[in-house]
Nucleic acid binder design. Structure first.
Length: 888
DNA sequence: ACATTCACG
DNA sequence: ACGTACGTGAATGTG
């Protein structure tokens, strides 16, 4: 037995509390009965418990900043100047952090004239020298300079729930600097949030470069005379005093007069009574129950636990009609792999909040009672993932009808985050955290499977029913409140079943064609490979960007255009700039294209052809941030078309029956039309009403020329600008796309906005309103929350601003084609057509149909798509058909 | 598990 | 001073 290692956790209270405040944006729902905001306390509490659970320290301290002035303000009176005043919603929570800490039995401490950092630095060194293991938790990256052997620094990432660990090794790897050099780096860079300057135009990248060359700030200045004349050199010379001052400010004190001994900060026992009264004051009812189950107090009210009454069905004789009598029962069919087109169901649960039934497929699927209940559309059911359920059951030759609600779709509409796989994840979004994750029950990776203890699994799925029913109520109330019922009930919910139909229908793919291509491509690839090795002088792995980078930029000494964080970039755009410099470039470009086609499509798709000769993709309905679908296993939304060689792959996609055709219809310019509609821009609307070429018309305006003066280059640039507008334009993005300078790009953008002032004001307004509401929305009220609009970091904020501009456009277009798909499904039935809808590729729908139905489809499909919704301008659709997808 | 690259809209 | 066009999925190499 080893004696217990002493472990000290030091919390940077000031930075963590502030982070905690911003981690939860939803201020309105975190207010206690006295009107006090509690969001920061709540997030801080969550962070503390998770760290204490994980680290289980013997000693701990939360350090606070003690006042506005410190020894640093004496050195530099602008230190931390210019900061925005602390929000009052945060200030009012300040006094209660220590109340919480007293309840936890964790010490807290502040020291006049010093910052929390300095207290932490001092105690960390003291403890490390005493043989402690030390962990520092902060929201401020500056503290990583404290990393040492036995001192780990954990910095919060996004909110306060995730931590990123820094040890001297990690720092060396990430920055290629020692911890001491981190201080030099800060000195050179300065710190905008602490308001000290550093050296002009020197940021992290430059600072690291300088330090790698000269070791320290002192080293930089000792060698400054040898530096080649440059702007950077001038800045370094001019800002020398600032740099050294900044370094002093950045250095955390390790010898602050902290009058605490390590014994003073031993973790004490939880003061249950104090904590209970704190939770009560803050309305943190959830934690009250945790506290009770952790301790042995029995005189407190019964904690709310997810217990569930359930019966396991063993034989068909156990089934009774009464088990299917109730309306609005939950139904859950469990399968352990994501791809429901392949596996088989392992266990099934259904029931009400009062009682749940659990059974196995081999029994249930033989039962007429069960099968009829599934099929009966009058018996309405609540599920998690209707499409998945529908397909799984259909593959067992069972009909599933009567979907009243799908809590997966509901949760996605309420907050389009990626939480599609596990009900427990969705439940946690709604503060139901008593349901274990699937991973806990079934394991993960190679170990995933049915648990030895079957009862565990039975109870798990029974609990899922309870959770599904609870979520149903919560989600519907919220959807109603958000005015999203129409989107939910009249679009997404019925669409799930239409998508199920498309997926189950599948698309026929001729393996022989792919095999023939595979051989052809293999020979070509081999030839190119040999040519490349010839020029390089040796063989290497052409698929490795690292090895390729070495060959191009070190051995052949081609100019480095761009670097990635791991080395040289060898991306296509880089290679294109190197064309003509060496014959190897063209070979590599050809190789890249061919090997992509070969691995992903020609060879890759063959693995997905089922025994029925078809590929059954999965359309993910609850994944994207904008409301688009995505397609996976395999992705049929990115089958090549732009290059002729790739496009040929489409020849392998054929109709199921002889004498049938592939029929395809696509919206033309749907996103720009949506923009014309929602921005109300009169000129743009006029172009679409007149049926003119939008890119050419844009060129006329921007270049101020007549229609026949528009050159193909002008049109190309205008087209790029139009795309840029849809994406939330930036001069940089446009310059990359058109391969021009940023200045030139900016001139284009200015000219565009001058000519389309309503687009300009729409873009400004939409960002502003998203900021106020906290989300961007589509024409049909689909939401995308954008908390980063309030981010301090320019890049993070700019990204969110582009999202705010793009989401209503891309999202509304997605809404429209979804309405069209619903209507199309109806229309095919109404018209008694044999045609099948097979795929959706964002702005196009793909069908297979008997040749005799083609004339009808040529009328019907455009009609439905064009009038799926009515906008201020017409939507137009173009159709084509052929013997395969290449010809369609 | 993560980064890079590239296929599509 | 910073470093980005919007939205996806899959293959590959590498740690």
């Amino acid at each position: 037995m080893t004696t217990k290692q002493k472990k000290l956790v030091l919390f940077d209270g000031s930075s963590l509390a502030f982070r905690a405040f911003f981690a939860i944006q939803n201020l309105e729902s975190f207010v206690n009965k006295n009107g006090l905001h509690t969001n920061a306390l709540y997030a801080f509490h969550a962070m503390m418990t998770s760290v204490l659970d994980k680290e289980n320290p013997t000693h701990a301290l939360v350090a606070w900043d003690a006042g506005k002035t410190t020894f640093r303000t004496e050195m530099y009176d602008e230190y931390k100047g210019g900061r925005q005043s602390t929000p009052s919603e945060f200030k009012e929570q300040m006094p209660f952090f220590n109340v919480l800490l007293d309840g936890f039995g964790i010490s807290h401490y502040g020291l006049v004239n010093y910052e929390a950092d300095d207290i932490i630095g001092t105690l960390a060194m003291k403890a490390a020298n005493d043989g402690f293991e030390v962990v520092i938790i902060s929201g401020d990256r500056d503290l990583i300079q404290l990393a040492r052997p036995n001192v780990r620094v954990d910095i919060t990432k996004r909110g306060v729930s995730q931590l990123e660990s820094y040890t001297p090794e990690v720092i060396r790897e990430k920055y290629e600097l020692t911890t001491e050099q981190i201080i030099d780096m800060k000195g050179l860079m300065g710190d905008s949030s602490d308001n000290y300057p550093g050296v002009t135009k020197v940021g992290e990248k430059t600072a690291i470069k300088l330090l790698k060359e000269y070791e320290s700030m002192e080293g930089v200045y000792e060698n400054i005379d040898q530096m080649k004349p440059s702007k950077r050199k001038e800045h370094l010379i001019n800002d020398k005093d600032q740099a050294f001052l900044s370094k002093k400010l950045a250095r955390i004190a390790l010898d602050a007069p902290v009058d605490l001994s390590l014994d003073d900060i031993i973790v004490k026992e939880t003061d249950v009574e104090a904590l209970m009264s704190f939770y009560k004051d803050m309305n943190f009812n959830r934690f009250m129950s945790d506290l009770v189950s952790d301790t042995d107090i029995t005189d407190l009210p019964e904690p709310e636990q997810l217990t569930v009454d359930y019966t396991v069905i063993h034989t068909t004789d156990d089934l009774e009609e009464s088990m299917f009598a109730e309306d609005n029962q939950g139904l859950y069919v469990e399968m352990l792999i994501p791809n429901y087109h392949e596996g088989t169901p392992v266990i099934v649960a259904w029931g009400t909040a009062e009682h749940v039934y659990v059974g196995y497929p081999d029994v249930l699927f033989q039962s007429d009672l069960f099968v009829q209940w599934l099929k009966n559309s009058e018996k309405e059911k609540v599920v998690f993932d209707a499409k998945r359920t529908k397909v799984m059951l259909a593959r067992q030759h069972l009909t599933f009808s009567g979907v009243r609600d799908d809590v997966l779709i509901g949760s996605y509409l309420l907050n389009a985050k990626d939480h599609s796989k596990d009900l427990a994840e969705v439940a946690r979004e709604f503060d139901i955290d008593e349901l274990p994750f699937d991973e806990t029950i079934y394991g993960k990776g190679a170990k995933r499977g049915i648990p030895e203890d079957k009862q565990r699994m039975e109870e798990h799925v029974a609990r899922k029913i309870t959770v599904i029913l609870r979520l149903q109520a919560m989600e519907k109330a919220q959807l109603e409140k958000n005015e999203m019922m129409n989107l939910y009930e009249n679009l997404e919910l019925p669409l799930a079943l239409v998508l199920a139909k498309c997926e189950m229908q599948g698309i026929t793919v001729e393996r022989e064609q792919l095999q023939a291509m595979e051989k052809e491509f293999a020979i070509k690839l081999q030839e190119i490979e040999n040519d490349v090795y010839q020029i390089a002088g040796h063989a290497f792995n052409l698929n490795s960007p690292k090895q390729l980078g070495k060959v191009l930029f070190e051995e052949l000494e081609l100019p480095v255009i761009k670097k990635t964080k791991t080395g040289y970039s060898t991306a296509q755009s880089v290679l294109e700039k190197l064309q003509g410099k060496s014959p190897i470039i063209d070979y590599i470009l050809d190789y890249r294209q061919l090997s992509k086609l070969q691995s992903t499509y020609v060879a890759g798709l063959q693995d997905f052809i089922h025994e029925d000769g078809k590929i059954h993709t999965r359309f993910q309905q609850t994944l994207t941030a904008t409301g688009r679908l995505s397609s996976a296993d395999p992705n049929l939304q990115n089958i090549p078309i732009r290059s002729e060689e790739g496009r040929k792959i489409r020849k392998a996609f054929v109709p199921e029956h002889k004498g049938w055709k592939i029929f395809s219809s696509d919206y033309s310019q749907i996103e720009l039309r949506v923009l014309a509609h929602i921005s109300g821009d009169k000129h743009m609307q006029e172009v679409f009403r007149a049926g003119d070429d939008i890119h050419a018309s844009t060129a006329m305006k921007v270049y101020n020329v007549s229609r026949d003066e528009v050159t193909s280059n002008m049109r190309r640039s205008a087209k790029a600008v139009n795309f840029g507008i849809v994406y939330g334009i930036s001069d940089y993005g446009l310059s990359q796309n058109l391969n021009i300078s940023r200045k030139e790009a900016q001139v284009f953008i200015d000219a565009y906005f001058e000519n389309f002032p309503q687009i300009k004001s729409y873009m400004d307004d939409i960002v502003q309103s998203a900021k106020e509401k906290g989300y961007a929305e589509t024409l049909f009220k689909r939401r995308r929350y954008l908390p980063d609009l309030k981010a301090k970091n320019y890049n993070v904020r700019s990204f969110a601003e582009r999202n705010a501009m793009n989401t209503p456009i891309q999202g509304t277009a997605a809404d429209i084609i979804k309405f069209a798909m619903l209507e199309m499904d109806q229309a095919l039935q109404r018209e008694n057509l044999e045609a099948n809808m097979l795929l959706q590729v964002h702005d196009e729908l793909i069908f297979e149909a008997p040749e005799s139905e083609i004339p009808k489809l040529e009328k019907l499909v455009p009609e439905v798509m064009e009038h799926a919704v009515e906008l201020a301008i017409p939507l137009t659709v173009e159709s084509s058909y052929g013997d395969n997808w290449y010809e369609a």
